[in-house]
């Protein structure tokens, strides 16, 4: 039985987005809603897990000089699978995520985990490592998506949660929340909260 605890790091203490600063790039734009953030998180977790697995299986046969190209091609092939799957079964969602599904290819979490973990480890640990890193990433996206949707549109998973009586009393949705800058500021605030609870992560600059 493998120890699952060892792989839980990415969920908080070693979170790829808010601690290691990996993979912020392609994702913040999809966090205007909870639903699209969750879909994006799942897609990344799937790609990260399986690319880690494949690279780990091939780790002894890939010449190290051309490993980046090999990794890119494997990740790109997996992303195409995810993209085609979304287009086939969740067409609206795939229209909404637009180019950001494709951009999973250049997501640094995936390349980073391949380089740092899958190249040295056995297939099963690599699969778990990829999966949990993807989930850690998905958690951050989902949190940002949750607040942006709740405060920006007053809905959650496309269902209205703020009652009409609030609006009658003069409550207004904060449209600023749906604009790009707030995603960055929210992440900044998340880092702030996270670091004040985990003192050892504080940077001395």
């Amino acid at each position: 039985m493998i120890q699952i605890r060892k792989y839980l790091g990415p969920l908080s203490k070693n979170n790829p987005v808010i601690v290691q600063v990996l993979g912020v790039c392609s994702a913040l734009a999809v966090t205007t809603q909870l639903k699209s953030s969750v879909v994006m998180g799942i897609s990344v977790a799937v790609v990260a897990a399986f690319s880690n697995l494949i690279i780990s299986l091939l780790r002894n046969t890939i010449p190290s000089r051309i490993r980046i190209i090999v990794q890119l091609i494997i990740v790109a092939a997996l992303v195409i699978l995810v993209d085609q799957f979304l287009q086939a079964f969740f067409y609206d969602m795939s229209k909404m995520l637009s180019v950001f599904v494709g951009l999973i290819v250049t997501n640094c979490i995936i390349m980073g985990r391949l380089e740092a973990f899958a190249l040295q480890n056995k297939p099963l640990p690599s699969l778990l490592d990829g999966l949990f890193n993807g989930i850690g990433y998905g958690l951050v996206l989902a949190t940002v998506g949750l607040f942006r949707e709740l405060l920006g549109k007053g809905t959650m998973w496309n269902c209205q949660v703020i009652p009409d009586s609030f609006y009658e009393m003069g409550y207004l949705n904060n449209v600023l929340m749906t604009l790009p800058p707030m995603a960055l500021i929210l992440i900044g605030v998340m880092i702030w909260i996270h670091r004040s609870r985990n003192k050892e992560l504080i940077e001395e600059e």
């Binding site: 808010i18 995603a183 960055l184 500021i185 900044g188 880092i191 702030w192 670091r195 003192k199 504080i202």
Partner: peptide, 16 residues
């Protein structure tokens, strides 16, 4: 504030 140093403030600056 200490916990905000480095990464945190970078995000907030970018947001602004």
């Amino acid at each position: 504030p200490k916990p905000l140093r480095g990464l945190g403030i970078s995000y907030i600056t970018t947001g602004l």
